[in-house]
């Protein structure tokens, strides 16, 4: 009894740790300067997939849709223990909302095939929507179990999971295959394995291999790809055409939601009355609040 998992991961701007360096003078955040990181909840999702592999055997495949540099997090997945990685990348995917993203990811999952579980983090910290998981499950026509904290039991064709709900938790039993979204606090992702880092730091996407051949007439891309595949260093790279996707459902065209307006939140400023921290100051403040019927 072994189980194959596909894990959806995302590279995100680090919106949680806003330091002074990324602040503009007007008090807003310079988004271009935020460092790109591995979305935490996706890392927890990978951990869950690896635990199932450790226990039952099977294969763990990671996929991400993103720009070429998103290969960074795919290498990190390989360091942790993933068997294979896919970068789904195409300029035509730019501007995708969750509906268009889930279309591309679901088609990539169908292309890879042969899976029992699809895992993803509950949500990514740049959008916090939690929509791509359920929307991918709907397109794959499989059950979704969101907000999962723990896998209780895995049997031949079903899984028992504990998930968070408002005010408590519930335990569900689902048939396989199913899509599971994972909460960050549920699991502590394993560190990189030194041996795997040594091996997979060389792992490269097709785009990165193409870069290596540029200006080097001795290298042929097909040969290079074969060599990397053979060594297990190849990060599969798929475009819109590779997946035979409907362009009208990708990127901006396939996205029903549009950003109409963006306002930066200003962190400075504000008009407030300074109250001296003295007995008198506080006494006056209380008087004032009592007069306004806010206190007392």
């Amino acid at each position: 009894m072994s189980f194959n998992s596909i894990v959806m991961v995302k590279q995100v701007p680090d919106t949680a740790n806003i330091s002074g360096q990324v602040m503009k003078e007007d008090g807003t955040v310079n988004r271009a300067k935020l460092p790109a990181i591995f979305n935490h909840e996706d890392r927890a999702a990978l951990e869950l997939a690896l635990q199932i592999k450790d226990k039952f055997g099977g294969k763990v495949t990671v996929i991400t849709m993103g720009p070429p540099r998103a290969s960074d997090i795919l290498r990190e997945c390989l360091y942790m223990g993933a068997d294979e990685a896919y970068l789904i990348s195409d300029r035509k995917f730019a501007g995708a909302d969750t509906l268009a993203t889930s279309y591309v990811l679901s088609e990539a999952i169908k292309y890879i095939g042969n899976y029992d579980f699809v895992f993803a983090g509950r949500q990514a910290i740049d959008g916090d929507t939690a929509q791509v998981g359920p929307q991918t499950a709907e397109k794959l026509v499989i059950p979704q179990i969101t907000y999962v904290e723990e896998i209780v039991k895995v049997q031949k064709d079903k899984v028992t999971l504990k998930r968070k709900i408002d005010g408590g938790f519930e335990v569900l039993e689902s048939t396989l295959p199913c899509l599971v979204t994972v909460l960050k606090d549920a699991l502590f992702p394993r560190p990189f394995k030194a041996r795997r880092v040594m091996a997979y730091k060389n792992a490269k996407t097709l785009l990165e291999l193409e870069k290596m051949t540029e200006g080097n007439s001795l290298l042929y891309i097909d040969q290079l790809k074969d060599e990397y595949l053979h060594k297990g260093w190849y990060i599969h790279t798929l475009t819109m055409d590779d997946l035979k996707l409907d362009e009208s459902r990708c990127g901006v065209h396939g996205s029903p939601t549009k950003v109409h307006k963006v306002e930066s939140v200003v962190l400075t400023g504000g008009n407030h009355v300074m109250v001296p921290p003295t007995k008198e100051g506080i006494s006056n403040l209380i008087d004032h609040l009592m007069e306004d019927h806010i206190l007392g």
Binding site: I18, D126, G127, P256, T257, V262, V265
Partner: peptide
Amino acid sequence: LQIRPAFGGNIIATIISPDV
């Protein structure tokens, strides 16, 4: 007009779904 914080709350975005 669907108004929501985004980017960890650093921006307020107004989202529309014009063609559905």
